[in-house]
């Protein structure tokens, strides 16, 4: 067994910080449960008539606030992750690298959880809303939550995870290797769902407003949704990054002989 040469003291910290894991899971959960409460109360009472003053108060103000907060959060979070990047990855101790790999998994857990709320929960919920009421604005309550809250949140999370990986993990070291293509697709594809809202709204004002969910107008969302399948390639890379660190200890020399475990055989 190889001796541990990592810095004493750092080694004391757990490999997986469960508090951060609980925080990542909890913050989205609690926040979105609150959002669901808000929808439950103000959807029916203030969200049906886009020309009513209470709509402006409870929904348009919600929209303006969330956009400001999202831009601020994205700038601060991405800026922080970039500014604090590791400029000397070659000197990284393996133990710390393993710890960072676990932290990276927490980032991906956050991204997956945010994707679930955005693409699954709030997207089908939007269907629930539209089929029940008459569409009377681009900014229906469900859109203010779905398009302009839950999508930006997973986009912010996804890019943050990507910046974290590329600036802190040697496997994803952007200076040596460039950008991971599956990472790029996993993050940029679902991101493109947001600009695709432009097509959606244009179509709905143009072709009027029947709520057929399977209408070809919506296929832009479908196409960009497919891109999240790149999580398959990305997870292979994540596993390879772990294998670099502990492949031998885990499976022995006869199974793991080094090299990039993610690479597909020719």
């Amino acid at each position: 067994m190889a001796a541990t040469t990592s810095v004493v003291g750092v080694a004391e910290a757990p490999l997986l910080d469960k508090r951060w894991l609980a925080f990542a899971f909890g913050i989205y959960t609690v926040f979105y449960l609150w959002v669901r409460w808000y929808e439950g109360v103000y959807g029916w009472s203030a969200g049906l008539d886009a020309f009513a003053p209470e709509f402006e108060k409870y929904w348009m103000n919600f929209l303006y606030t969330e956009i400001v907060l999202e831009v601020t959060t994205a700038s601060l979070l991405w800026g922080y992750l970039w500014r604090t990047r590791d400029r000397n990855l070659d000197a990284l101790a393996p133990r710390e690298e393993l710890r960072r790999n676990m932290t990276h998994l927490i980032w991906l857990v956050a991204y997956a959880w945010a994707i679930y709320w955005g693409a699954s929960y709030f997207t089908e919920q939007d269907g629930t809303w539209h089929q029940t009421i008459v569409r009377d604005t681009d900014f229906t309550p469900s859109h203010i939550i779905e398009f302009y809250l839950s999508y930006p949140i997973y986009i912010i999370t996804g890019y943050a995870a990507m910046i974290y990986a590329h600036t802190r993990l040697p496997y994803f070291d952007y200076r040596k290797k460039g950008l991971s293509l599956p990472y790029l697709i996993t993050v940029v594809g679902p991101f493109m769902i947001l600009p695709n809202v432009g097509l959606n709204e244009w179509g709905h004002t143009f072709w009027f407003m029947e709520e057929l969910f399977v209408a070809p107008l919506h296929y832009g969302f479908v196409f960009f949704g497919w891109f999240a399948l790149s999580i398959l390639g990305l997870l292979l890379q994540v596993f390879a990054s772990f294998a670099n660190l502990m492949g031998r200890e885990l499976c022995g020399e006869s199974v793991y002989r080094g090299g990039d475990a993610a690479t597909w055989p020719e």
Binding site: W34, W37, G40, V41, W44, S45, F51, I133, D136
Partner: peptide, 24 residues
């Protein structure tokens, strides 16, 4: 708190507005 909020939202007896007829 979140669960109470959810239950409160569900039990809420609302007055719903008009139906978007003005948008057309």
């Amino acid at each position: 708190g979140a669960l109470i909020a959810l239950v409160a939202a569900v039990a809420y007896g609302p007055a719903a507005l008009a139906h978007g007829e003005k948008s057309q």
